[in-house]
Write a protein that binds this DNA or RNA. Structure first.
Lengths: 342, 342
DNA sequence: ACATCATTTGACAGCGCTGTCAAATTGTTG
DNA sequence: CAACAATTTGACAGCGCTGTCAAATGATGT
């Protein structure tokens, strides 16, 4: 073993491309090529290099690579929640598309706060991501400006708008809220209430869809409504239902802003003996896994969340590979009519 | 506007620390210090620098920083699944601990495959993470070797073992499986079956806990058992239960390897009119949100997943800040006795 | 006023890699 | 087999930042 006294005090001691080059009898440039663009190099050389890489346990330094090539192979993803199953599926779709393409995912949770989101975008940009996926279309002006300035490919995901920052993949929450409410009317319900929690922008748009569906029917849109800023939970769904029905015993159906609330209500009806869907129709939103499993199964708005994730990621890839430039993709939604409505 | 002809062809055109330095009338080193270690710099200077940063819209380049300082402020997290709510909470805990400390999360999904995991670890190491959180203790030999060689702080999370790679935060799945089975015996059930899906290492250990609890009672441990490699779902829980009971109509309680299967079984009992817990006791694992919400509420093993995430992240932080060196933290579990068992 | 010490700032080199372009090698053709 | 084109390889500089250490500045005491 030779002495290591001559190495710089700042050296990390890590195996570098130069070490591989020496061992393989080639120049660092050539090793870099053999690793990054194998087809541009002779078979013999490639084998020698791979051999050396293996023997030395060489791990390329992505920071150096990013610095030299201005490409990080990182995609930043900003969600407002990680525990919400909607975002889990979305992330799954993003992951399964990006990873095989050689990208990595830097993930952050804004906790539904534009302030946190602003800070996270800042941090993310420092990483030189090759693209960004961000939830919704309601970023702060600061954030929007920052993002626009970068000229990076950006996908706003989950909902659509008319003036996206760049690309936009989602569906209309207004239309979805409208459609499920109309569905309830069609099924013969007449006094349809709305119960919403957290009431983030997308919940608000669903609520507006509900309101306009009531207006379409010439009904008072704000009568049977109960919302809260609290986070959704099964228990909250039960509580809010009890509260609203205590005020308006004539309600015959409820549209909940998400499945968790709706399922909580169904469970509560089971306990209290309220007949669903005969006495009370119940509809949710998202079509989470449990929606079709519970009894009675839950009528809800089904959204292609995994697919939406895949599409969002694919938009970035297409742009990064200069293939095509999607502007706006409507992934749509569908009404899953089940047992909780007649 | 002055001509830009002199800039190098490789320049990114990005605002650099040198630009800030010029504007602030200081040297790049000083600007770096003002930004990274503000307390080591005069107030006047700090204000001038911040002003220049704001005016120029300077965004530090983390790749350059990593390269120069050998610190990436990135923690790599490898999970076997993203859609499983257990990992969502875990991730939430990790996130909420690491982000305030100035770290970023690089997340990847191994899909319960050691091969995928091996590739992911490779990719992760290229990013020079400051630490790694990886699920479970059953990595491939290759992966283990690779991880050990890095000398990075590593936390194996979710379950405990005797020879962790480095740090270890979790609980004993064997003990938990044993405890819940014992609980069923104590509640007077005698013919207790086990139903498991996916049967990853941790499910297997829970199963072993079940088996030993049966052996403790002098019972045949493999009689009332049905497992599959298929992924869990509500429907699968129902199907497997029907299958197992068709073979052994004398079963009076079932321990399912997770809550999804157990809940699916409960829903099926509601449909088919089987009385839970009188005719059949049902127990799950994880204590997901819906476990306490459904009717009858689900008896299950409650695990502190969010806390476990926080602890795992805290272990890394403590190590990175040279504070203390945790070796092994048992976060424990508890039996949530609910209505699905008598 | 000066010497002495502590604090703040700056010059410099280098972290490990890749883009550029020129040099070397190989293949092709009359 | 010379003459040329096509392919493969290597030298070099620089991506943007920070660690190191020396220089400048300010504070303190005599």
């Amino acid at each position: 073993m030779s002495k290591q006294n001559l190495i710089s005090s700042r050296s990390s001691g890590r195996v570098t491309i130069a070490d591989v080059a020496k061992k393989a009898g080639a120049s660092p440039s050539t090793v870099s090529r053999a690793l990054q663009k194998p087809q541009q190099v002779t078979e013999k050389l490639r084998i020698r290099v791979n051999q050396a890489v293996k023997e030395l346990g060489y791990i390329p330094n992505q920071a150096a690579r990013s610095l030299a090539s201005a490409e990080s192979k990182i995609i930043s993803v900003i969600f407002p929640s990680l525990s919400n199953a909607v975002f889990s599926s979305l992330l799954d779709g993003i992951h399964d598309t990006l990873i095989p393409a050689g990208y990595k995912i830097l993930l952050a949770n804004s906790h539904y706060s534009v302030t946190e989101e602003e800070a996270l975008v800042e941090t993310m940009l420092e990483q030189n991501p090759d693209g960004i996926i961000i939830t919704g279309v309601d970023q702060s002006d600061n954030t929007k400006q920052r993002l626009k300035n970068t000229k990076l490919p950006i996908v706003q995901v989950m909902e659509l708008c008319d003036d996206p920052l760049d690309m936009n993949v989602g569906f209309s929450h207004f239309d979805a809220g409208h459609a499920i409410t109309e569905h309830l009317f069609k099924r013969g319900y007449n006094k349809i209430g709305f119960i919403g929690a957290r009431m983030d922008k997308r919940s608000q748009r669903r609520f507006q869809g509900y309101r306009y569906a009531l207006l379409d029917q010439g009904k008072e849109p704000d009568k049977y409504v109960l919302t809260t800023l609290a986070n959704s939970s099964f228990q909250l769904g039960a509580d809010l239902m009890n509260q609203l029905i205590a005020q308006h015993s004539d309600i015959d159906a409820l549209f909940f802003s998400n499945d968790d609330l709706a399922a909580g209500a169904i469970f509560e009806c089971q306990r209290s003996g309220v007949q669903v869907p005969r006495q009370l129709g119940i509809a949710g939103f998202n079509d989470l896994d449990f929606a079709s499993a519970i009894t009675p199964s839950l009528t809800t708005v089904s959204i292609p969340r995994y697919e939406m994730g895949k599409q969002a990621a694919q938009c970035l890839l297409d742009r990064l590979q200069q293939r095509k430039h999607h502007q706006r993709i409507d992934v749509g939604f569908s009404i899953a009519a089940r047992e909780s409505t007649r």
